[in-house]
């Protein structure tokens, strides 16, 4: 099948992400990681995809009302599209700053809310796009190239 950009998709998977479910949080990223391992991709590429997927998933769990992560694997790329319904991000530039977090004290005590999620996604991504509408939700689009490696 061909998607809107005309790129052949090898595989497409969608994972649901529930808000505030800290028992299941991280399952989407782990399922994706196992799939990428089964496809025999380079461990460094898998790690970068795992970081991006984990941080995107945790942001949906912590900061939104719930969402979905859709992953397309093409011959050249891993495309992660993470969409949620939620409060959105009023100032994206500020949200992207290392250390900036609106997470509660309770969340921070669990070791989340270090404000490293979005910066880590950016570092792991070959392409990174974030769009957010206050009062509606946030969409994150991450592209990771198979060959770029570390």
């Amino acid at each position: 099948m061909a998607d809107i950009r005309g790129v052949e998709t090898l595989m497409s998977v969608t994972y649901d992400i529930a808000a505030r479910d800290f028992v299941r949080a991280g399952e989407a990223a782990n399922k994706l990681k196992r799939l990428l391992q089964q496809l025999g991709l380079d461990p460094a590429v898998i790690r970068r995809a795992a970081i991006a997927a984990y941080e995107a998933e945790m942001n949906v769990v912590i900061h939104s009302y719930g969402g979905q992560m859709k992953v397309d694997i093409t011959p050249e790329t891993i495309e992660i599209l993470c969409q949620d319904s939620g409060p959105g991000i009023p100032d994206i530039e500020q949200a992207l700053q290392e250390g900036y977090s609106t997470a509660s004290e309770e969340i921070r005590e669990m070791g989340f809310g270090a404000g490293m999620g979005l910066p880590n996604i950016q570092r792991s991504a070959d392409q990174f796009q974030i769009e957010s509408t206050v009062g509606q939700g946030t969409t994150l689009h991450v592209t990771i190239l198979h060959e770029a490696g570390e």
Binding site: F22, R47, Y54, M58, G111, F112, M116, N120
Partner: peptide, 28 residues
């Protein structure tokens, strides 16, 4: 004890020492 820090930096096949006790530790 910072999940994002471990996720970004810890090398594969490491022993991870932490004081966190919740299930997300296992996911990471």
């Amino acid at each position: 004890d910072l999940l994002s820090d471990v996720m970004a930096k810890a090398a594969a096949r490491s022993i991870w020492v932490t004081n966190q006790v919740h299930p997300n530790v296992v996911a990471v």
